[in-house]
Design a protein around this nucleic acid. Structure first.
Length: 497
RNA sequence: GGUCGGGUGGCCGAGUGGCUAGGCAGAGCUCUGCAAAAGCUCGUACAGCGGUUCGAAUCCGCUCUCGACCUCCA
C-alpha cells in the first residue's frame, strides 16, 4: 500500500507522514471558543480532522487526539479597552461566565455528536490550565523573550525574529510587518506592534481573573494551546491542525512560544483546512452571515431554503477537498442530500446481497473494475485525505450494486473475493473513515407493522387490479412522508422522509 | 498597500502535461398497471490573450476578475 502523504503548511508541500513514536500519533486541533453558538464554519475543521483521526486509526495508529475548549475568553488586543468576549457576553445574557461556557460547550458537543465526530481523547479547557500557562510564561520571561508592562506580559517578537525564523508558517516577513504597522500609538503598551500578549492585566470590571506573578489577570489566547498541547502530547507531537485563519497570528505565535520554551516548534506537520464561504464571502461574525448549527439543522435562517440533516452537511463538506474553499448554497446542499441518499441506498442494498461462491469471476472486466475502484480508495485517502475522490469511487460502484440486486448483472459476475472486498470497502470507507450514517431514523417495530398492514391491503388491491385503491394508499402515505416503492421482485419497500 | 490562493460544463466540485473524475439538475431509452427507484445513453467544460511543447485545464508571461490573511475568527 502507498504511504500517507499530507500537505504540511509549514513546508508548503506534501510530505510522507512518519509518526514520532511508531504506531502512535499525537494530534492537536484548535477547538472552539465557547462564547457563543457553534456555526457552520466550525463544522469544517472538526469534520475534517475527525476524518484524519479516523483514517489514522484505520491505518493502525493509536491516536491521542487533543482538542481544546477556549473558555477563558479572548480579548480584543487592538481595542481601546481589553474586552473579554466571554465575560461581556455573560453580562448581556445575565449568566455567570461558567454558566455561559457550560451552555455553549454542551451545544458544541451536541453538534459534534450529530455530525458523528468521534470525541477527542482529551478536551482540555483553558481555565483548567491557567497554572500551566503561567509557568510557561515565566519560563519565556526567564529566557528573556517576554516583558511585563502594567501587569501584562508580551512576547518580544522582534527579538525572537532576530534569532529564529519567524513567519515561516504563515509566509510573513518580520520586516514587512514592522514597516506596515508603524501607526505609532503611544497608548500601546507593546514595544512593537507585532508583539502579542501572553498575559493580560484584568481591569476591575473583568469577571474572569486569576492571580499571577504580575497581578490579577487572564492568559493570552495563544499560550493556552502551547501549554496544553505540550502537557498532553509532549514538546513535539505529530500533527497540529486548525482552520486556515488561525495560521496567523495564532499558530505562528504558538511556534514562537514553543521555540523559546522547548527549543523547537510544537508539531512536525501543520494542517489547515480552508474556509466555508457564503455567496463567495467568508462566513464570520464580522460579515454578519453566520449560520448557527441549530439554524442549519432546523432550517430557521433567511439564507436557508430548508433544514439540512447533519449527515448531508458532513457529506457535502467531504465532497470537497479540505484545502479548497467550500461555497455554501442551498443548491449544493440539496444536491448532496440526494447524492447521499442514493449512495446510502446502494450501501444498504449491498449489505443484503449474498456473496457468491464462485472463486472465478464470470465477468473478468467488471471484476477488475470493481476491484480497482475498491483499492484506489486507500490511494486517494493517502493522497492528503482526498475524500472527494473516495466518494467518487464509491459512486462508481453504485450502478454495479444496483444491477446485481435487480438481476441485470449476475451475482457471480464477480468473484467471491471481489464481492467480499466490495462489501468491506463500503463499510470501511463510508462508515468508519468518512463517518457517514443513514439519513433515516431507525423505525420502530410498531410503525413497521402498521405499514406492512397497509402494504398488504395495497397488494391485494393491485391483484384485483383495483388501482384506484392502491394508488390512493400510496399517495396518502406519500403525503405523510412515507414513500412506497414496488420492487422488481414484487416486494414493496418504503422510505420515510 | 503587502503576502497568498483561486477562476473548470446550468449548479456543486475532483484533477497538474496526453487515457478528457464524481454528484445534482436536464434530455432520450429500458423496466413498470401507473408512479417512484434503478439501469443504459447523451450534453465534451476548463476566465481572456500570448508563449513553451508533438501535445496544456494542467508549465511560463501578461490582462481581467474573485477571495483569504495582515485585527477576534474554524
Amino acid at each position: 500500500m502507498s504511504e500517507l502523504l499530507l500537505y504540511n503548511t509549514y513546508t508548503r508541500q506534501k510530505e510522507i507522514f512518519e509518526s514520532i513514536t511508531p504506531n502512535h500519533v499525537g494530534l492537536y486541533v484548535c477547538g472552539p471558543t465557547v462564547s457563543g453558538e457553534s456555526h457552520l464554519g466550525h463544522a469544517r475543521p472538526y469534520i475534517t480532522f475527525d476524518v484524519v483521526n479516523r483514517y489514522l486509526q484505520h491505518l493502525g495508529y493509536k491516536v491521542r487526539y487533543v482538542r481544546n475548549i477556549t473558555d477563558a475568553g479572548h480579548f480584543e488586543e487592538e481595542g481601546r479597552e481589553a474586552e473579554d468576549k466571554i465575560a461581556g457576553k455573560a453580562l448581556l445574557e445575565k449568566l455567570e461566565p461558567m454558566e455561559l461556557v457550560h451552555k455553549y460547550t454542551d451545544l458544541f458537543h451536541w453538534g459534534m455528536r450529530l455530525f458523528n465526530c468521534l470525541p477527542p481523547s482529551i478536551e482540555p479547557t483553558a481555565t483548567g490550565h491557567v497554572i500551566e500557562q503561567i509557568s510557561m510564561i515565566e519560563d519565556i520571561m526567564a529566557k528573556g523573550y517576554a516583558y511585563e508592562v502594567n501587569g501584562s506580559v508580551y512576547f518580544d517578537v522582534k527579538k525572537y525574529a532576530s534569532q529564529y525564523p519567524y513567519g515561516t508558517l504563515s509566509g510573513r516577513k518580520i520586516e514587512d510587518m514592522l514597516e506596515t504597522t508603524r501607526e505609532l500609538d503611544g497608548q500601546d503598551e507593546k514595544i512593537n506592534k507585532v508583539d502579542f500578549a501572553l498575559w493580560k492585566n484584568a481591569p476591575p470590571e473583568h469577571i474572569m481573573r486569576w492571580k499571577s506573578p504580575w497581578g490579577e489577570g487572564f492568559p493570552g489566547w495563544h499560550i493556552e494551546c502551547s501549554a496544553m498541547s505540550s502537557k498532553y502530547l509532549g514538546d513535539t507531537f505529530d500533527i497540529h491542525g486548525g482552520g486556515m485563519d488561525l495560521q496567523f497570528p495564532h499558530h505562528e505565535s504558538e511556534i514562537a512560544q514553543s521555540t523559546i520554551a522547548h527549543g523547537h516548534g510544537p508539531a512536525r506537520y501543520w494542517m489547515h483546512n480552508n474556509m466555508i464561504t457564503i455567496n463567495g464571502k467568508k462566513m464570520g461574525k464580522s460579515y454578519n452571515n453566520v449560520i448557527k448549527l441549530t439554524e442549519l439543522f432546523s432550517g430557521n435562517h433567511p439564507i436557508l431554503e430548508q433544514a439540512y440533516h447533519p449527515m448531508v452537511v458532513r457529506f457535502n463538506i467531504l465532497q470537497t477537498h479540505y484545502r479548497s474553499t467550500l461555497d455554501f448554497s442551498n443548491d449544493a446542499l440539496q444536491g448532496s442530500e440526494k447524492a447521499l441518499r442514493r449512495l446510502w441506498e446502494a450501501y444498504e442494498v449491498l449489505q443484503k446481497l449474498t456473496i457468491p461462491t464462485n472463486t472465478e469471476a464470470k465477468d473478468e472486466v467488471l471484476d477488475q473494475q470493481v476491484h480497482s475502484f475498491c483499492t484506489e480508495c486507500a490511494d486517494f485517502m493517502n493522497d492528503d485525505f482526498n475524500t472527494a475522490k473516495v466518494i467518487a469511487s464509491l459512486f462508481e460502484l453504485a450502478p454495479t450494486i444496483n444491477s446485481i440486486r435487480s438481476g441485470q448483472i449476475a451475482a457471480n459476475a464477480l468473484s467471491a473475493s471481489t464481492f467480499t472486498l466490495l462489501k468491506s470497502t463500503f463499510k470501511t470507507y463510508l462508515e468508519d473513515i468518512l463517518g457517514l450514517q443513514a439519513l433515516q431514523v431507525e423505525q420502530s417495530n410498531k410503525l413497521d407493522k402498521v405499514l406492512s398492514v397497509l402494504i398488504d391491503i395495497r397488494k391485494d388491491a393491485k391483484l384485483r387490479k383495483d388501482f384506484a385503491t392502491s394508488d390512493q394508499i400510496r399517495n396518502r402515505l406519500a403525503e405523510s412522508g412515507v414513500l412506497l416503492k414496488d420492487e422488481k421482485d414484487g416486494t414493496v419497500s418504503y422510505t420515510i422522509e
